[in-house]
Design a protein around this nucleic acid. Structure first.
Length: 587
RNA sequence: CGGGGCGUAGCUUAGCCUGGUAGAGCGCCUGGUUUGGGACCAGGAGGUCGCAGGUUCGAAUCCUGCCGCCCCGACCA
């Protein structure tokens, strides 16, 4: 039992000016966190208790799924990363961790960095320590602080520079076993979020800089989320928009027959899809080819889409480049022969085709017959362009951004879209890191193989905020039982009355014996203040002891989720509270 | 990093355009009256107006630079 006056819960009537979304405001107003700087937060005692709740449940689920907890350093030798597969891609978000020193290293690469994640640490460790199939599989995890110099920290704990994450790494002898490990983790995640009392759905996701073969994100549906989830209720298909596909292009699509030879025509001043749609050209966007130039690891390449489609940049990851960026106008002209606005991928029109790393086309362009594209000559376009006959495509792929309303790839029903907060991510990595670091084992035939890896993350601190985002009302937080910092608040309206505090102690003990953690509001505040704060901090069960009620021999029980108040005779109160606690814990 | 906005007491902010004694609400301290949904009265403490330059007789206010924070975009748990 904790007395409010001996604890520390600095609640605020007003929201801080820098908080934008409900959960961020409530985190601060309810006295869970305070900001130190952009993306840097102190967890106050109440917030820390919630962190411990989430951490404990996470640990239990990880242990149950066969995870083995360890602890890795957060200061990493930079060399370790320089040797790894993604230094170039990751260094921008990494904090350097040199001594403050004399400034002589300024401008040079750092000696140490703060760990944004730990593949680069765990893989060499496992390489050194595990060499036999007898010691596999293994799944190591830690629950620890991560450091990422986010380009734009935002929304309180939602995107912080320093945050708490559970990260796990599985090592298996072969692909089948790695898939088993992957789905064991998926199940553990589902159990974790269910126990916390929040809805998090697993969606297919892009593997991003992590690499690997497939992955799921766990999303808490919320309007303020950073990600778009594309889903179909009928088939259960759900994917991050970055990864989502649709059945827009029929599998049995037959390419349109060419209507005639390619013709060049003048289009002075026309540099946009929209301008070609307008008179006098009147070419609808879905009959235009859009040709984009990107640079992958220093070499330009083309992406061809329908004029009506948008490129989904994340899908370029499938091309295997380490760093990809849009080309600049200066880079484009020498290669293609024209400025942006007149570009195309028609065979023979590209000035320096040898300079290209490839021409990659979205499947959907096959829906175009006799289309229009740039002539690679400023102010000219080509008509009667046909995909199979005319375009110099190296490879087809899925590069376009799916839009809601397109047919679901499983059911064919229209896809829907909603926003979500990513709270967890699981990756089947394959052998990307084990190859790089030489993490191999010897099988029972004395053969050496790379270990097949998976990696898994849960944003613990982000989950804290996601719970609030998903579970609050106009008055404050509504904690799910198992995430709540305390489960029972005993509101003593007249703490100066000895009998009131005695009863609070007695009933608090009863609640504790039933398995609850109890906070007693013993402040000498007016009732209104106490009730407002009670709603704000949102403990699931509130017990009110007032001088007035005591005279009548009653106390009051109220659930944070409900409006009604249950009046209990003092004589029955202890028993009734214990029952309510058991009910809350079981719910 | 590009675009936009904001820095005034612990918090929320007015004042800035049009330069002239820095104000309010909340919170805090003292006393009193109150006491079941953020009470009231009286008194009080608390500010280098983000920092550094400049203009001016005089700068929170005008100008320049820097720093910090927030929002929109690309990245992530």
């Amino acid at each position: 039992m904790k007395l409010w006056t001996q604890f520390f819960i600095p609640t605020l009537k007003e929201s801080p000016a820098d908080a934008e979304i409900a959960s961020h405001k409530l985190l601060v107003r309810a006295g869970l966190v305070r900001k130190l700087g952009g993306g840097l937060y102190t967890y106050l005692p109440l917030g820390q208790r919630v962190m411990q709740k989430i951490t404990r449940i996470c640990r239990e689920e990880m242990d149950r799924a066969g995870g083995i907890e360890l602890w890795m350093p957060h200061v990493h030798p930079a060399e370790l990363w320089e040797q790894g597969p993604r230094w170039a891609a990751a260094r921008e978000i990494m904090f350097r961790a040199d001594s403050a020193g004399d400034g002589k290293r300024a401008g040079k690469d750092p000696e140490f960095v703060l760990g944004p994640t730990h593949e680069e640490v765990i893989t060499p460790l496992v390489k050194a320590e595990i060499t036999s199939y007898r010691d596999l599989p293994k799944n190591f995890y830690q629950i620890a602080t991560k450091f990422r110099n986010e380009i734009r920290p935002r929304y309180g704990l939602m995107r912080a520079r320093e945050f708490v994450m559970m990260d796990a790494y599985s090592f298996d002898t072969n692909d089948d076993n790695a898939v088993k490990s992957y789905f064991a983790m998926k199940a553990a995640y589902e159990s974790f979020f269910r126990r916390l009392g929040i809805t998090a759905i697993a969606v297919e996701a892009d593997t991003g800089v992590m690499g690997g073969s497939f992955s799921h994100e766990f999303m808490v549906p919320a309007e303020v989320g950073d990600d778009d989830i594309i889903y179909c209720e009928e088939s259960g298909y759900a994917a991050n928009r970055e990864k989502a596909t649709s059945a827009l292009v029929p599998a049995d699509l037959a390419d349109a027959a060419p209507a005639g030879a390619i013709e060049e025509f003048a289009t002075p001043g026309v540099v946009t899809i929209a301008a070609l749609e307008a008179a006098p050209y009147a070419v609808s966007a879905d009959r235009q080819f859009k040709t984009l130039v990107y640079v992958g690891d220093g070499k330009p390449f083309l992406i061809v889409l329908r004029g009506s489609d948008e490129l989904e940049e994340a899908k370029l990851g499938a091309l295997g480049f380490t760093v990809v960026r849009p080309a600049t106008a200066e880079e484009i002209e020498p290669v293609l022969g024209a400025k942006p606005g007149s570009l195309g991928a028609v065979r023979g029109t590209i000035r320096n085709a040898d300079a290209l790393a490839g021409v990659f086309a979205d499947h959907a362009i096959r829906l175009i017959g006799n289309g229009v594209t740039g002539a690679n000559k400023d102010g000219f376009h080509l008509r009667n362009v046909n995909v199979a006959r005319d375009l110099a495509v190296t490879k087809f792929g899925d590069f376009r951004r799916v839009r809601p309303g397109e047919p679901c790839p499983k059911s064919g029903r229209p896809l829907q879209s909603r926003r979500g907060i990513e709270v967890g991510h699981i990756f089947k990595l394959g052998t990307k890191y084990s190859d790089k670091y030489g993490a191999v084992y010897t099988d029972d035939q004395k053969q050496s193989h790379p270990m097949v890896m998976g990696c898994y993350g849960i944003g613990i601190s982000r989950t804290l905020q996601a719970i609030i985002e998903q579970s609050h009302d106009a008055d404050g937080i509504i904690w799910p039982w198992h995430a709540a910092p305390f489960q029972v608040l005993i509101c003593v309206l007249d703490p100066q009355l000895p009998e009131a505090m005695e009863l609070a102690t007695k009933l608090g003990n009863a609640a504790e014996q039933a398995g609850a953690e109890v906070l007693v509001d013993d402040r000498a505040e007016r009732p209104g203040v106490k009730f407002k704060d009670a709603d704000l901090i949102g403990l699931p069960l509130r017990l009110t002891i007032g001088g007035k009620g005591l005279k009548e021999g009653i106390v009051e029980l109220k659930w944070r989720t409900r409006k009604d108040v249950e009046k209990l005779p003092v004589a029955e109160a202890a028993e009734r509270i214990a029952a309510a606690v058991r009910e809350g814990a079981g719910a």
